[in-house]
Design a protein around this nucleic acid. Structure first.
Lengths: 74, 74
DNA sequence: CACCATTTGTTCGTATGTATG
DNA sequence: GCATACATACGAACAAATGGT
């Protein structure tokens, strides 16, 4: 889960793409890493991580539950 | 265009609702006030105004053009 | 062509609120 | 009550696109 700030691809897009790959390949099935964990893993800010995850929420690929986490829809 | 921070309705939701009313009633037809103008009009932060407008972008009600502005789709 | 003002787009770091367990 | 986790908001900064001078 490495983010390159200098890339032409925006950090939130890189995050979304990398998460999508891990979801698609089945590496992530149930619960996604928490936003706090993702900020630690990526070095990104909270808002940026949210932005990346929002992509999936819009698509209906994941479901977020306050106090619980973010889950891959199946 | 008044926002009440103490309301149960979030500021970005209040903004979206009020803009929607003005669009629906035909008070706003072409270009929306710029984000900078909306922050001045509402006292909200840039990000919050963006959030409110994003609602319409998602819905396809408006179209944003970098360097130009935000326009009501017709 | 260069320069500049305007406008949207993204990111940061922090704070507070709300829901869950 | 407390820890965890998502949700919203703030203020600031910088980039990129547009259009006019």
């Amino acid at each position: 889960m490495r983010i390159d700030p200098a890339s032409a691809e925006h950090p939130y897009e890189q995050l979304a793409r990398q998460l999508r790959e891990q979801i698609g390949s089945g590496k992530i099935t149930g619960k996604l890493p928490s936003i706090t964990e993702l900020t630690a893993l990526t070095g990104l800010a909270v808002g940026t991580v949210r932005r990346g995850i929002d992509v999936f929420v819009q698509e209906g690929l994941v479901q977020t539950v306050p106090g619980r986490g973010t889950f891959v829809r199946r």
